[in-house]
Structure formats: structure tokens, C-alpha cells
Write a protein that binds this DNA or RNA. Sequence first.
DNA 1: ACTTATCTTAAACCGTTGTTTTAAGCTGCT
DNA 2: AGCAGCTTAAAACAACGGTTTAAGATAAGT
Lengths: 248, 248
Amino acid sequence: MLEQPRTKRLTPAIPAGVPGLPEAVDNTRTRLLKAAAEVFAEHGYANATIRQICTRADANVALVNYHFGDKLELYTEVLRFSLQPGAGFSLPIVAAEPRAALRQIVGAMVERAFETGGQANLRFRLMLNEFVRPSGATARVVDVVLRPVYDRLREIAGAILKLPPEHETTRLCVHSILGQVAHFAHSRQMLGLLWPEMQMTPAQRELVADHIARFSLAYLDRTPSSPPRTAGRRPGWKKRPSRGSSRI
Amino acid sequence: MLEQPRTKRLTPAIPAGVPGLPEAVDNTRTRLLKAAAEVFAEHGYANATIRQICTRADANVALVNYHFGDKLELYTEVLRFSLQPGAGFSLPIVAAEPRAALRQIVGAMVERAFETGGQANLRFRLMLNEFVRPSGATARVVDVVLRPVYDRLREIAGAILKLPPEHETTRLCVHSILGQVAHFAHSRQMLGLLWPEMQMTPAQRELVADHIARFSLAYLDRTPSSPPRTAGRRPGWKKRPSRGSSRI
DNA sequence: ACTTATCTTAAACCGTTGTTTTAAGCTGCT
DNA sequence: AGCAGCTTAAAACAACGGTTTAAGATAAGT
């Protein structure tokens, strides 16, 4: 009796809204989804509370459980709902030239990490929170939000590196890029303590995006005469024994 | 009556232990500090519970409040306690050549982020948690743990860049390096979903540290013939207006 | 031995959070 | 009007987490 909620119905029949455009209707369900997206994006799954969401949606506490069953179901529905408007991945801007594309995608990520409002921004911040405190729906967040960015970044980085997208070096570089963006987004408070002038104003955000792109391109765009030591595709990981010299 | 705890004494007279070597004594206070350091390092301040800490220390729940007043006081005491053994900053390894020093410091950070055990590792993970969920003692964490790494990294990066440590470009580069380390440390679960082979085994940790160092050095070590666009010291930040072309 | 200060314990208190219940309001239909 | 099905509201429940209380142990001082 514990594995299934005791409510008569989990989700009471999707409210007959047009499936492609749920932002038009204004029933309680939609208001809850909208509020939940904002609160989840701001505080992360665990730190968001149902009462916060319901207050923002001007709805009763019990309505989350009536409409969605439980908190986690609401969260996954937010992800589904948040994906509706655009067909595929909604980073439309993509220059053909991979270096320009990289700069654009980094700029878009930095903007999304800081600019409030807009579903794509909410979705991106949702993902940033999953990075550091995975919820029970992390796999879904990866599929819905992160994988598209990841795959596109691998293509772009691979094109510049002249390596396949699934190459180890390509993947490491993509994680380096994602890591820089996530870091500037997450550690805003500590950043302010270390570097008081950095307030992440719009102009500073552009500066940061410029820096991340240039910093990353310096490696990606290196002369082919100095290939990375790991360029050869090594099938296994265990070969290189821990050399222990980094012990301190 | 609320601003001051009602216990007769906040901290009941430091237990006369040798101030330099608190790891020898095994009274309740020390056991609590040890357990708290582990739990805080693993879960972060907010997500660590006093009951968790007390269970691990084999102590009663009330003892935290008896010995330290409240949770935050315990946390700051952990930081103070955690700093005791080494005199200053405990990253002893520093090669004279800045490129080698960078590789060493990155390797040490990656190891500390993943290797369990050891006070310096605990302290570093404590800091990593503060990055993403600042507690009430963030300023103290910055002073005790982060600032030394930050300043040393700025010196090293500045030496390679041939720029002063307080230069904007130097700072941006240091944040890029810190961001990469923090990202690989934080997003372990999501990393596994995107890249199942990456399990952060010791060998893979070395690979990651190598990559971060090489990736970062590509920019730091660039030929002086292509200086960064922001090399000139600009006193103000507001000059460059948001160019709006990154709107999507 | 009696007192005192220090430390420990079990139990409770109080606020918060996810969840459920119960009882009402609607709305459309006959 | 009356019924049925969907939706909302108010209240409560159960679990958890930080904190406090009141009493019991232990050791030292006199």
C-alpha cells in the first residue's frame, strides 16, 4: 500500500489543453506548473517546498498532491511541461563556423544561468541544480535538458579539435567548458567574497562568456603540431597505473 | 532571550588539550568535531543533520548543543579545528616552475576532492560544498580554506600569463581552473549518466587532472603575440554596453 | 562526607515539510 | 431541482530536524 499513492487518480486527466501550447490556459494545474518551475529552478528540488510553490501559485497545499500525486511527480511534470514550446533543443542560434558556434552557445548558457524569466532559462537553471544535488529525476533531466547541450557541444568541440565527438579528449573538453559555466553560475556568493567588483552585471556576464570561450578555444584551437597526449583512442582506462607521485 | 542560548556556557572551556595537537585526545568534544567534519564534508552544512553527526560520534544529540551552542557554531569550530595541524596553507608541494606548480596544485585539488580521509581533503570538500550552497559561515570558509588556494593560483597563473595576480584576466583564469575542478567533483552522478565509462577511478582522476592542467595551460601559456582582448587594465566595468546580439 | 562543577542521558518541545483526509464548492447534465 | 464528477479549501497527520529541559552520572575540592 505504500508503493502506490492512495489517491483515486494520480493525474486527473490532462486538462484538455492544447498539448503544444500549455501556456495559454490558466487553470490551477498550469499555475502550479509555472510556479513550480520557478521555485525548483531557484532552489533545486530538495530545497524547494510545496508550500512555497503553492503560495506562489496562489493555490492550496493539497492541490499539488491532487493534481500530481507527489512532489517528485510534479517535478518530472515540470520538466515535461518545460519542454513543450520548442520542438527539439531550444538553442536556435548556431553559426556554421564551430568557433563562432562555441562562443554563441557559451554566451547563451551564461545568459540562461543568470537571466531570470523565460522557460529555457528556468530549464537550464534546473539542470544546474541537478549537477550539485541530484534528485530522483536526474536521469530525466539529463535526457530532457543536458544531453542536447552536451551532444551539440561535443560536435562543436570535436569539429575544432578534429576529433570524433565520442573521443575521450573531446568529452573532457566539453566537461571543462560546462564546468566553467556551472562554476560562475553556482559560486556567485563566494565569487563576490573573493572578487568584490565582480557582480555579474550584464556587461560582466558578457565578459565572462567571452573569457570562457577564449580560454577554451586556446586548447581546442591549438596547432595540430602538438596533439594531446591522449589523442590515440585507448579502449581501456585501467592501463595507466596511479603513479603515486602526487601524494602530498 | 532568544539571541543568546540559555545554556550556562557556550563552549565549556576548551578541554585543556594541547592547542597544536587536538587529534591525540579522545574526549566527546573531539569525537564530535571529527564526526562533524566528515558529515559536513560529505553532505554540506544544510544537509548534514546533528543526529547523523552524533550517531557517528557515538554521542547523545544534546551534546552538540552543550559543547558548541548550536549547529553553526559547531561548523565554525570544525573549520577552526580543521586548520590546526598545518601552520599555514597545507599544499606543501610547489615546484618553482609555474607550469609544474599548476599541474601539482590541480592534481592535489582533484585528489582532495575525491580521496576520502585526511583533514586537508575534508576541508577542501567542505569548501566545495560552500561553493554551491553557502552556509552562514561562508566568509570564514573563504578565509580559512579558499583564499590561500585562490591567492596561490593567482600568483602561478599570473607568472605564466606575465600579468599581475590582481589582473582581471588572471582572476578569470583562476576561476576557470577552480570551476573545472569543482565541476568534476560535484557532478559525479551526472557525469556517470553522460559518460558511463568515467568512474573517477584513481587512474581516471589523474587523467582528469592532466587534462585540466593542459587545457588551462593552453590559454595561460599562449604566445605573447596574441594577447587577450581585455589585457589593458580597464578601471570600470560598465563601459562595454550589452551588445544584445546574444539574444536568442 | 558534602558540595560543587562538569559531563552525559533520555525525553520532550517546537517548527517545518510532505502527505492525507474530510468536507465542502463548483460545473454541466437530465 | 437533483445528481455526478471534478476541483478546492481547511485541517490534521506523521516524520524529521534543531533545540531545550530536567535529571542522572562522574570527578574533584574542601
